[in-house]
């Protein structure tokens, strides 16, 4: 990617650096400070929206590694989130684990279930894999509902809120900090995982599976690794979600959520850490827009128009992006950046 003019890489470390210039560092810190100062300016409402965006970002990071980098399309991401959610809910509510011990367990459990349902990926790809993951979602939810004695079945179960040394993450602001801290860490890891040996192997598999195999990339291990990492992210997100609501039900993980996570990837741009953030933020804001506009539209036109608005809008956004901007907002962002750097000479 282009650097500001006059900046040259003079070593491996510089070449690999994500933040290369002082301006980039300043912008990073300014962004982080602004982000963490949010609770000072905003009320509970905006913080709730931001927290949910944060949880989505964590989840979509996983999906991005799995789908965007390794091309193993998963449409069962909400199901894997449910695994993490219920693991941590059961550990904290029934076995009195602290949240901090339950969170890694949730991540691990989701990862392992991810590996199990990732097994078909060794033989199939594309549409077939999508169907395998769709099946995974429905089977997971069914199993949770079956275990009535443990999970409370369809009635759900109450979940304690995270706690650290007597301080309970109960207020919106405190939970916002928790989620954002994990989201930032998640972004940091996501950005770096794809720069490791495994990450490069994922990209090789995405670009051409057979060629990757010929080059010596072990498809067996790397595909399952991608599933593991992707589902670990999902598990963390799921766990954060149920502890936020302080209640776990299977309704929190509807099948369509998996689809919208993929939609976020499309809108944001596949295979780009920045794209995940763009995608999650824009689709969630679209949701908010629909919610706010709904009643106005209902008064002006008809309640039917208002209730179909959400579906049609979201469908159209994905549809239009696929046709006109298949590489997503991240690509557009890159173009804007390079345009800014090169201006007034456009080449």
């Amino acid at each position: 990617m282009g650097l500001p003019s006059g900046t040259f890489n003079q070593g491996y470390a510089q070449d690999m650096a994500i933040f290369r210039t002082r301006t980039q560092w300043v912008m990073l810190f300014a962004f982080l400070i602004l982000l963490f100062a949010c609770p000072l300016f905003f009320g509970d409402r905006i913080l709730t929206v931001l927290t949910i965006i944060g949880i989505s970002i964590i989840s979509v990071h996983g999906l991005n590694i799995l789908t965007g980098y390794c091309n193993q399309i998963s449409m069962g991401h909400a199901g894997f989130m449910a695994v993490g959610a219920y693991t941590s809910a059961l550990l904290t509510a029934k076995l009195d684990f602290s949240f901090w011990a339950a969170l890694p367990c949730a991540a691990l459990a989701a990862g392992i279930v991810g590996i199990i349902f990732g097994l078909p990926s060794l033989r199939v790809k594309g549409f077939y894999l999508i169907m395998a993951t769709v099946a995974a979602h429905f089977i997971i939810i069914w199993v949770i509902l079956q275990l009535y004695g443990v999970t409370g079945g369809a009635d759900g179960m109450a979940v304690p809120r995270p706690e650290i040394g007597g301080f309970v993450f109960k207020s919106k602001a405190s939970y916002f900090y928790l989620v954002m801290a994990i989201a930032c860490l998640g972004t940091f890891f996501a950005k770096n995982i794809v720069r490791t040996r495994a990450g490069r192997a994922f990209i090789a598999i995405r670009d051409n599976e057979l060629a990757a195999e010929v080059m010596g990339v072990n498809l067996w291990t790397y595909k399952l690794q991608a599933f593991f990492i992707g589902c670990v992210y999902a598990g963390v997100a799921g766990s954060l979600l149920v502890h936020y609501v302080a209640f776990a039900t299977t309704d929190q993980f509807p099948f369509m959520n998996s689809v919208w996570y993929l939609g976020m990837l499309i809108v944001g741009g596949m295979g780009s850490t920045m794209g995940v953030i763009f995608g999650a933020v824009s689709l969630k804001l679209l949701d908010e827009l629909v919610t706010v506009v709904g009643p106005i539209l209902a008064a002006a036109v008809s309640p039917q128009a208002a209730s179909s608005l959400g579906l049609i809008m979201r469908g159209l956004v994905i549809l239009l992006f696929l046709i006109f901007e298949p590489r997503g907002l991240a690509h557009r962002w890159q173009m804007v950046k390079s345009y800014y750097r090169l201006w007034p000479f456009s080449h």
Binding site: G126, G315, L316, I318
Partner: peptide, 23 residues
């Protein structure tokens, strides 16, 4: 276009059809 793009397109289509049916 790649497989995922086509599938996402039909999903988007299904969502729009659902919206239209509601409308």
């Amino acid at each position: 276009q790649p497989v995922l793009a086509v599938i996402m397109m039909t999903i988007a289509l299904s969502v729009v059809l659902e919206g239209l049916a509601t409308l």
